[in-house]
Design a protein around this nucleic acid. Structure first.
Lengths: 261, 261
DNA sequence: ACCTGAACACCGTTCAAGT
DNA sequence: ACCTGAACACCGTTCAAGT
């Protein structure tokens, strides 16, 4: 379907497809393959085609090389995906715990995490598929635990909180992506060289809820505006705040004026 | 690999493989295909082989039928997966909202949801891949919203809370499954006809954490016992309670003695 | 009406062979 | 040392043909 004749560029199918780089002249110096270059090419394919379109053969094509050549540098497709996952969080640093600012530090963490996940298409799906205890990611877990414990949370809460927040971030971004995909799919390939158009979709969704029978879905109808409109940034913050308040409730001093937001 | 000669049954590879029913005599009355029977067979294959092993061809084989025959009853593999997803929650009812018992009602909801997800292998992965606004699932969303609003939560919180809890449930069960898979994979196919052995894995995990350098991972080491041991039931409840307390913090009356648990 | 057989356009992975 | 070519054992989906 996307296998048009060479030299027939298709319109960009996704917001990640920032000007499809020309296939042929992509490898100018014929520099040798490497783990790093394979991962790089995989990200390019991911952004172009999405996770379902990410195949070893396409990565090889992106590099102007045979499929089997890849297996000298990555041991399997799963290995490649794990490489991408850990590379996504390269240089992701957690701050020294500051007990007075633990909420703010967690908000920063969540925002930075979401930003990274949003930086490549379907990245949340890849992230969800990996338990975060690979060696490279352990410092992040450690950093989160440090913040929780410095804040004064009981150990059994601290032990659970990292997973809770990380799952929230992954899950939220995953859903964001699903909405975009669904919008893109419904538009067909027709006139939609416009990116998924993040606003028109919210309207369609609201219309959908509004069309439901009032006697069966009174609450869904009443909240349709809130559930779908509002920037997803503020929706993300709302959910995050619920979690942070829940954590705060386990603090010895239930600081009264500390109402957040 | 699992294509042994007919009549050479392999040892059960998963806890779901409760006594692999014999292939040949499976279709006694030669009753005609139907949407329902296709979904049924798909669940069998899922439990045997996991989501990665769930192919249209295997579903067809399970039914003693050609692949192409399936397409008269389901329009695609995605269609089949969505059918499985909605069927999983068949008969899932939400109670009439009782403002005094909203926490308990949500705990029941979460437990019932987790139980359903655990009833078939990799079901959380399938659930995660579906945004819960398919027509069949809308009553659940409505029922959740009803509970939140009856409890007195502000609308913008109620609108977010359903997603938050559902994502938590999916994410938690997803991770449970990943630990089991990892344990099963590390055991190789060797002597492990014993099911993943949910306890030995916790030990291995704790050993892993304990082996980390103490100066770099003091908190991870200190909490290793809590992060991995303890039944996953109580870990599930802990995370859930954090969310419920967060929600409760938005109630007008911050009921003082209402400390839950 | 319901299913089969064969084909098409893909997959991930392996491995002997080339340079 | 690094890559190619060909093969193997799979995929999802379509469609003419059989009964």
């Amino acid at each position: 379907m996307s296998n048009a004749a060479p030299g027939t560029p298709a319109p960009p199918p996704s917001p990640w497809d920032r000007r499809r780089r020309p296939r042929a002249q992509a490898a100018p110096a014929r520099l040798p393959l490497s783990r790093e270059r394979v991962v790089e090419a995989a990200f390019t394919v991911l952004d172009d085609q999405g996770l379902d379109g990410l195949s070893m053969r396409r990565v090889a094509a992106e590099l102007g090389v045979t499929v089997s050549a890849l297996y000298a540098h990555v041991s399997s497709k799963d290995d490649l995906l794990e490489l991408m996952y850990t590379r996504l969080f390269d240089g992701f640093e957690l701050p020294e715990p500051d007990p007075k600012r633990w909420r703010e530090q967690l908000r920063d963490f969540a925002h930075a995490g979401r930003r990274r996940l949003l930086s490549h298409r379907d990245m949340a799906r890849i992230s969800m598929a990996h338990v975060p205890f690979t060696a490279e990611l352990l410092p992040h877990v450690e950093g989160l635990l440090a913040i929780f414990r410095a804040a004064g949370l009981p150990d059994h809460i601290a032990a659970e909180a990292g997973d809770l927040i990380s799952t929230y971030i992954d899950g939220f971004v995953l859903e964001e992506g699903m909405w975009q995909d669904r919008a893109a799919r419904e538009d067909g390939e027709e006139a939609s060289l416009a990116r998924p158009d993040w606003h028109e979709m919210a309207d369609r969704m609201r219309d959908y809820f509004a069309s439901l029978p009032a006697e069966d879905f009174p609450n869904l109808r009443a909240l349709s505006g809130l559930m779908v409109s509002g920037s997803s940034d503020t929706r993300f913050d709302t959910g995050l705040e619920i979690i942070l308040r829940g954590l705060a409730s386990y603090l010895p001093d239930t600081a009264p004026g500390d109402d957040a937001r």
